[in-house]
Design a protein around this nucleic acid. Structure first.
Length: 261
DNA sequence: ATGGTAGCAAAGCTA
């Protein structure tokens, strides 16, 4: 079972890339973020033609998450149950066979200590509370998405950025994400590649559009697949489709994937 | 501190 997460930065602008990638990589489950369209405008038909069931939770212009699955989706949850007063579409969850999955788009956070930053911290606190509930279930759980945090120095092109008061890198953001690790959610890619550091091209999932970041290998690993222990037991492989970031008019994120036995 | 690029949507906001 191959499960991927990808922040597409507009599903309509990225539709051809998405379809080409679905055909070549044939994931069983895809967790999408930043679809940036209302549910009625989601391009369901060409995706369904490739054999996928679809659950969407969108909004106009910003945010928006979706789950694609070759097998049926059950128990769809839209929005974090622990953050019911948030109008932004950043969380969708579903049960697929024996695996519960979610597509998560954590707020970027803007400037450190801004209102947006506080929203990011509240979102992480809500994630932590919801994870505590989900981890009591006797299910494999795969929590994928754009977490907008590089958790360790080796998750960024310049390890010296780690812990600085910069968005994606600050101590408070890293602690918020590591809180989820400490609950028992494993970092799928890091479990598979414990020694891949920022040497060479590193293990990155996002490169800023500006200043030729991709060509200069100035990336960050901020897209993650978090796995409960029952999912970790089934983890067999994983990777990042870095080549997709090099396509013409690409998303600024590359797809991240794992396979479960 | 600013601006570098991209998407939405129609000027500025978000990232």
């Amino acid at each position: 079972m191959k499960i991927a997460t990808w922040n597409v930065n507009s599903v309509k602008a990225r539709l051809e890339h998405l379809l080409d990638w679905l055909k070549s990589e044939a994931p069983d489950v895809v967790l999408l973020q930043e679809t940036k369209c209302v549910d009625e405008a989601f391009p369901r038909d060409p995706i369904e033609d490739l054999g996928y069931n679809i659950a969407v939770y969108g909004q106009k212009s910003y945010n928006g998450v979706a789950i694609l699955s070759k097998t049926p989706l059950e128990d769809v949850v839209m929005g974090l149950p622990t953050l019911t007063d948030d109008p932004q579409a950043r969380y969708i969850e579903a049960l697929i066979g024996t695996v519960r999955v979610a597509s998560i788009y954590v707020p970027n956070g803007g400037e450190i200590d801004s209102d947006k930053f506080n929203h990011k911290m509240r979102f992480y606190e809500a994630l932590r509370r919801h994870a505590e509930n989900l981890l009591t279930l006797d299910e494999a759980l795969v929590w994928g998405g754009d977490y907008n945090v590089a958790p360790y120095p080796w998750d960024m092109h310049d390890p010296a950025l780690s812990g600085q008061d910069r968005i994606l890198c600050s101590v408070r953001e890293q602690e918020a994400l590591r809180n989820l690790f400490q609950l028992g959610l494993g970092d799928g890619l890091r479990l598979l590649y414990p020694h891949t550091s920022s040497q060479g091209q590193g293990l990155f999932s996002w490169w800023d559009y500006r200043q030729g970041s991709f060509e200069r290998h100035k990336g960050f690993r901020i897209d993650h697949l978090l796995l409960s222990s029952l999912a970790c037991d089934r983890l067999t492989s994983g990777g990042i489709d870095t080549q997709v970031r090099g396509w013409q008019r690409a998303s600024d994120h590359a797809p991240v994937w794992i396979t479960l036995s």
